[in-house]
Design a protein around this nucleic acid. Structure first.
Lengths: 347, 347
DNA sequence: CTGAAAGCGCTTACAG
DNA sequence: CTGAAAGCGCTTACAG
């Protein structure tokens, strides 16, 4: 069976490198060399190179990525594993990562762990079989072994927002303690002394250091640091709101609350609203992480913002360095970003 | 150079089908057949099949996807092209799509068009060269030709939330007219007659039909349908808020406003807040599409909700049918979902 | 400068 | 039931 030689290239189903080669009167390898920018190196005449490039443009030829991957082992694809892509924080992170990655010619496969390490590990396995060159992960508890395995396979990994304790894997996180300190100092300077702390029951490093920083601050200012309330991660919103109301009612003399993360802050605002308490007159509120809701609902709330763009940029950079097999230097290995204290003007 | 025969499979970098075959004392094709569930068909003994499967488990062998793709043309990857992944609506859609797709063994590559058709078309091109089996797109103006090209290449495409006018490509959208009608009827039944309509200046089908339905409703009730205000899509939030305030001030006798989409509703609430107008006493508000902000900020707002889950499910189903090369039947070709009218109890 | 060949890791049609 | 071979579309080392 003869090849469909008579047909015009432009109407053919798929143009392959062979077609270009035939048309240009050269052998496929020459086309490949030109396309991979090695024309000069291999001393291919400018004239020929231009002819080939023109032909590629004309036919709209795109190299078959599967073939390239098989041959080179490269896929130009990154795996983005977040807690939940529908959550504003991760969605914004995904957008920032996307912008950076596409700039560098990488595509992104995403998936959500929902803090379920069984699901998470399956996802990693699914993506790691030659499909994804590197991983950007916001890990959850129980992913340590899987991440370790990736490292053993020499798959570049960068963790974001948190990291796996005890693993020597690069990460980009916020300086959580500095963030909490700033927030606490802000409250302290305004004269608040009875400050409660509401966090989740998850055993996550970023949450732990926020709690730690809260305790530290309270202790070092001779204040009661036991006014901490932990809310289960898996809980119905109404119940969470109820629990927060109860907590506030119980500690009647609280004058401020520090929420350890945005969705807790949202529940908190809802609770305050139901209790008809106003911010900041009845209670001052600081929340770690921003949320759409805060902007409109309560401009007076003080927010510790994650510089998401900058986290994304660093994470991608660190991944790219690993690709180049350049060792990351020690101070690049674990990057901590400065948080932004966002004090909104009360209306 | 001899193969690394002496080594244990489990410490080797990558286990290939050849390794499994050698270990099992068969030829690679046999392993392939077993792995692809064709053991029975090819009358391979249960015993052998089990032995091979055990070996695969033991070694953690994962087929090289690039090789599979090259051979079969399948990638088990879908391309999700949305307007902006960081927007709640699309992020939620992405999550719903993800859930469905992973269930069926598909991964997802995402990217955001930002309503820029040049970017969008580049993205489509980037993904279409053998990497993505099918597309889920929320198209923007100017993508028509690119979508047409995908169809010519026999790439399955399903559009969501909107569609390209004039293209015979399957889509899943909301029944926008029914949604607007319900919202308008709701306002009408409550006695509101001077109803304004705020929409964007984008030439998008979903926005057009919402506007059309508004006009229809007003006309058929002998009401003034000219109280329409269009806001540029690319605009600073503050300016949008200012413009809405001006609009409301200008039409002093308005008693209700219908916002054509969620971010406009958000701007609207901000404007109302700045003007110290209350909902629904000074103005009744209906907004097409839900938003996090509404829940807390203004429980009294009436919302026309998109059933995102159900859109995702249908879209994936329609894509899968195309994969199977089963013609979609006429009434499956363009699926319209019923919107939910969400009337929140005013607190 | 250019061409022929090998091979990435699979799957599938074909021959026994 | 099983094996040998071809080939998916590339890239790269090697030979001229």
């Amino acid at each position: 069976m003869r090849r469909r030689q008579g047909q015009l290239l432009r109407v053919m189903k798929k143009v392959s490198i062979k077609d270009i080669a035939r048309e240009a009167g050269v052998v496929p390898s020459t086309v490949s060399i030109v396309l991979n920018g090695k024309a000069k190196e291999k001393r291919i005449s400018d004239e020929l190179a231009e002819k080939i490039i023109a032909l590629v443009k004309e036919t709209g030829y795109q190299p078959n990525q599967a073939a390239v991957s098989l041959r080179t082992g490269r896929t130009k694809t990154l795996g983005l594993i977040v807690e939940d892509i529908s959550n504003v924080f991760f969605a914004t992170l995904a957008k920032a990562i996307e912008d950076k990655a596409y700039e560098l010619g990488y595509k992104i496969v995403y998936c959500s762990t929902e803090n379920d390490h069984k699901k998470a590990n399956e996802l990693v396995k699914m993506l790691s079989n030659q499909q994804v060159e590197g991983f950007l992960i916001t890990p959850c508890k129980g992913m340590e072994d899987e991440v370790k395995r990736l490292k053993e396979q020499k798959k570049p990994v960068v963790m974001m927002d948190r990291y796996c304790d005890g693993l020597d894997t690069p990460y980009v996180i916020l300086d959580n303690e500095a963030g909490v300190n700033e927030g606490m100092k802000h409250l302290y300077d305004k004269g608040y002394r009875k400050i409660g702390f509401i966090t989740s029951d998850l055993d996550q490093v970023q949450m732990k250091s926020r709690e730690f920083a809260y305790r530290q601050f309270m202790q070092s200012h001779q204040l009661d640091d036991r006014c901490i309330f932990k809310i289960p991660y898996v809980i119905k919103p109404e119940i969470a709101v109820k629990k927060i109301s109860d907590f506030i009612s119980k500690y009647k003399d609280l004058d401020a609350i520090f929420f350890a993360t945005n969705y807790l802050g949202v529940h908190g605002l809802e609770a305050l609203k139901a209790m008809k308490l106003s911010i900041p007159d009845d209670l001052a509120i600081v929340c770690f992480d921003d949320h759409d809701l805060f902007r409109l609902y309560s401009p007076g709330i003080t927010v510790i913002k994650q510089p998401i763009q900058s986290i994304a940029v660093s994470a991608i950079q660190m991944l790219m360095k690993q690709f180049k097999e350049q060792q990351l230097s020690d101070d690049e290995l674990f990057v901590t970003k400065k948080p932004d204290l966002l004090i909104r003007a009360s209306t």
